[in-house]
Amino acid sequence: MRFISVLVAAAALFGCSALPGDGPAAINITSQDVESSAEAGDFTVVVIDPVNIEAIRAYRPLAFANQFRGVGRGGSPTLLGVGDTLVVTIWEASPDGLFSSGDSGSSQIPSVVDENGFIFVPYAGRVRAAGLSIEGLRQSVQKKLVGKAVEPQVLISLKDKLSSTAVVVGDVMKPGVYPLPLRNTRLLDLVAQAGGAREATYETVVTLKRGNRAGTTRLEDLIEYPENNVYISPSDNILLSHRPRTFSAFGAVKSNELVPFRTKSVSMAEALATVGGLSDSRADANGVFLFRYEDAALVRQLRPELADKLAGKKTAPLVYKVGLRDPKGFFMTQHFEMRDKDILYIANHPTAELGKFLQIIAPLLSNYTVVQGITD
């Protein structure tokens, strides 16, 4: 039996570090390691507590809105341009006038601003339209008809402003090119005009391309955070994509897997339940970690001392840590919302390594006992 004692002691001292595992144990992630990694810029660790959980829940992700702040006019130009379709209505004081017809005493003339910027009006000829306002064009047409029509009165209506358009494509019901009205048009207005998303809003992302700038956000964030519902500018390109959300679970959980979101929101508690919860024999209840690229603005709010280091950055790698040995931890996991591409890792308890070692040497102990019995 002395042989077995020596074998166990030696293996315990030298063999456990080489045993296979699902990842680093919580005991290996010390405060010193965290600080040195944070100083090196690798990542930042935030322990979830009742104070910062409220800051996390109250944070408004506005990176999408900030991407387009001050870029683009947010509406269609008020001046006419090539491709605009108009209706020119002309009244005359005499029923025998050039444009008098029927009881209305007027004529409606559809017109399109041609490639040279002109429209054609009978008896007025070619009239410059591009670069003029609707009122400016009305006065110009009416002036040209003086002396040809009987006391002409002119009204010009804008039918479609095809000189200012935006493109909506992707997973929408009616993709196409949409003219922008003179009033300001927001992103959701144009998505609704295109029939809305084909899939659930929480599984759809919208990408807005404006010049050399581009931004992507969840379609539901345009509703949840109205600041993200930016104004559309001429020549904007909008792409809607069906992109289901997922999170990954690793470590001492009962099932290591990639898990799709099945509802609009999933809390950390629900995520843990989805993968079967913590492994009773291996998990460290105080070693629940969530890895995420978080908005730098939120990281600066949670860790003000990192403000200078994160200056100019949009995102930063962040590790949230929560302990479940304290009952408060369970309440906090209920209020912590998962996001797309989150990584949930449950660390092994230090004693789990000894359990693995005992499983490895159990056959050796059994064989040794049999040999000893035969020898005796």
Score class of each variant (00 low, 15 high):
residue 265 S to I: 15
residue 36 S to H: 07
residue 19 L to K: 07
residue 287 G to S: 13
residue 96 D to I: 01
residue 302 L to G: 08
residue 296 A to I: 10
residue 272 L to V: 02
residue 183 R to W: 06
residue 61 P to C: 10
residue 247 F to S: 10
residue 338 M to A: 10
residue 39 E to G: 01
residue 139 Q to I: 04
residue 238 I to S: 01
residue 31 S to Y: 13
residue 299 V to G: 00
residue 164 S to P: 00
residue 153 Q to A: 09
residue 79 L to G: 02
residue 194 A to Y: 10
residue 360 I to P: 01
residue 242 H to D: 01
residue 80 L to H: 03
residue 219 L to I: 07
residue 42 D to H: 12
residue 166 A to Y: 00
residue 147 G to A: 08
residue 146 V to G: 04
residue 253 V to D: 04
residue 57 R to F: 04
residue 61 P to A: 01
residue 109 I to Q: 02
residue 36 S to I: 13
residue 224 E to H: 07
residue 337 E to A: 14
residue 204 T to V: 08
residue 258 L to F: 06
residue 278 L to N: 00
residue 337 E to G: 14
residue 154 V to G: 01
residue 108 Q to M: 09
residue 196 G to A: 12
residue 350 P to D: 05
residue 7 L to F: 11
residue 193 Q to N: 09
residue 324 L to I: 11
residue 143 K to G: 02
residue 365 L to F: 09
residue 121 V to S: 03
residue 206 V to W: 02
residue 337 E to D: 12
residue 186 R to G: 07
residue 170 G to E: 06
residue 273 A to V: 07
residue 209 K to L: 12
residue 260 P to N: 14
residue 71 V to K: 11
residue 28 N to I: 08
residue 120 F to E: 04
residue 257 E to I: 14
residue 299 V to W: 01
residue 90 I to Q: 04
residue 345 Y to H: 14
residue 161 K to Q: 14
residue 265 S to W: 08
residue 252 A to P: 11
residue 104 S to K: 09
residue 189 D to L: 13
residue 369 T to G: 12
residue 216 T to G: 10
residue 229 N to F: 03
residue 156 I to H: 05
residue 99 F to T: 07
residue 363 P to R: 15
residue 219 L to Q: 08
residue 90 I to L: 08
residue 139 Q to S: 07
residue 94 S to K: 11
residue 280 D to Q: 10
residue 22 D to Q: 13
residue 92 E to Y: 08
residue 218 R to T: 10
residue 147 G to V: 00
residue 124 A to L: 06
residue 58 A to N: 11
residue 178 Y to P: 01
residue 348 N to E: 12
residue 209 K to Y: 11
residue 327 P to G: 08
residue 360 I to K: 08
residue 95 P to S: 13
residue 372 Q to M: 13
residue 128 R to C: 01
residue 230 V to D: 09
residue 99 F to E: 05
residue 250 F to C: 02
residue 280 D to R: 10
residue 362 A to R: 13
residue 268 M to D: 03
residue 44 T to P: 01
residue 193 Q to Y: 06
residue 317 P to C: 15
residue 35 E to L: 02
residue 246 T to V: 10
residue 367 N to D: 05
residue 44 T to Y: 04
residue 19 L to H: 07
residue 341 K to P: 05
residue 78 T to I: 05
residue 237 N to C: 05
residue 98 L to Q: 07
residue 24 P to V: 15
residue 90 I to C: 08
residue 191 V to N: 00
residue 73 R to L: 09
residue 49 D to S: 12
residue 107 S to C: 03
residue 237 N to T: 15
residue 121 V to C: 03
residue 216 T to N: 04
residue 265 S to M: 12
residue 221 D to V: 04
residue 183 R to T: 08
residue 266 V to R: 04
residue 66 N to L: 13
residue 319 V to P: 06
residue 81 G to L: 04
residue 366 S to P: 00
residue 78 T to Y: 01
residue 142 Q to S: 03
residue 359 Q to F: 14
residue 280 D to E: 13
residue 166 A to L: 06
residue 100 S to T: 11
residue 306 L to V: 01
residue 185 T to L: 15
residue 251 G to W: 04
residue 173 M to W: 07
residue 289 F to V: 09
residue 2 R to I: 15
residue 46 V to A: 14
residue 359 Q to Y: 14
residue 260 P to E: 12
residue 366 S to R: 07
residue 32 Q to V: 12
residue 286 N to H: 03
residue 126 R to L: 08
residue 249 A to N: 11
residue 127 V to L: 03
residue 93 A to R: 12
residue 309 K to V: 11
